[in-house]
């Protein structure tokens, strides 16, 4: 496994007891300042969203730059607007203000419920994605097998979604989103409905796929540990209105375990911030 080393300048050895660090993005100054010289995969500028004309502001002036190949976790309490932000990046919703640019065009999306087509087998579900991508008929079956094999499901190719466990369905959904062959993969709480053991395995699966395929991943979750386990960057969102509050960068030294001390330490720290955010809403 490659151990990509992150900039040394903001290393701190004692988490939770460190200076504010380097500001990467604020709501007033777009992240472009920092990322100007770096190629960007996703750029969100001054994005705001409200549903309807008189609805409450769900997202408020979000600015965000994501580099190609980054694994970014978007973390926040339920209802803070994570899905809305992800859907806007995916082009499924339109922003009320601001702009979103995805350098590679459209992105692949994976949802919490696998949303597989129940009338198609696992293989056909993947093949449909290939078909809509324009892959010629003769090559679809073989490619679908390869993708299913990538998520270790070659044996389940002819099973229908209802015959698969929740974890297997999500892996088929992952294979399907990889079939889209888009550089950016957006994931909306894809493992939230799974038991801990299965989720653990899927974290490894996803991380491996990420390292092998070099995709840019935006992973939405409300699970702090999951974010700390997976992300290179963790973005914490506040609620009502949804803003990006904090950001953590995690040095990538290869796969981490969810039980490992550094994940736990980070999770505790993020949780404290998250609770503070939630407490603000009590008043």
């Amino acid at each position: 496994m490659s151990a990509v080393s992150v900039t040394e300048r903001d290393r701190t050895d004692i988490p939770g007891n460190r200076p504010p660090g380097i500001i990467v993005s604020t709501n007033t100054a777009p992240a472009a300042i920092v990322a100007a010289d770096v190629e960007t995969a996703i750029r969100v500028e001054g994005l705001s969203k409200r549903f309807g004309k008189a609805g409450p502001v769900v997202l408020d002036n979000i600015n965000l730059t994501i580099k190609p190949g980054e694994f970014v976790c978007l973390l926040g309490a339920s209802g803070c607007g994570k899905s809305t932000l992800l859907n806007i990046i995916a082009g499924l919703e339109h922003p009320s203000e601001g702009a979103v640019t995805v350098a590679s065009g459209k992105s692949a999306v994976m949802f919490q419920e696998s949303a597989l087509f129940p009338w198609l087998t696992a293989s056909r579900n993947v093949e449909l994605a290939l078909k809509l991508r324009g892959v010629p008929r003769g090559r679809r079956r073989g490619e679908a097998r390869e993708l299913l094999d990538l998520v270790n499901l070659a044996d389940a190719a002819d099973k229908r979604p209802h015959e698969l466990s929740g974890g297997m369905r999500q892996r088929v959904a992952l294979a399907r989103s990889l079939a889209q062959d888009r550089k950016v993969l957006l994931m909306d709480e894809p493992f939230a409905a799974l038991d801990a053991i299965t989720r653990d395995l899927l974290h490894e699966e996803l991380e491996r796929v990420w390292r092998e395929t070099g995709r840019t991943i935006v992973f939405v979750t409300h699970n702090v540990r999951e974010a700390a386990r997976l992300g290179q960057r963790v973005l914490l969102m506040s609620s009502r209105p949804g803003r990006i509050r904090n950001e953590w960068r995690i040095e990538d030294n290869g796969p981490r375990r969810i039980e490992s001390p550094e994940v736990s330490r980070l999770a505790i720290e993020i949780t404290n911030h998250l609770r503070e955010e939630i407490r603000r809403n009590a008043a």
Partner: peptide
């Protein structure tokens, strides 16, 4: 709004 970047070093 304050946004900080932290780096965790294992």
């Amino acid at each position: 709004p304050e946004t900080t970047t932290d780096t965790i070093v294992p």
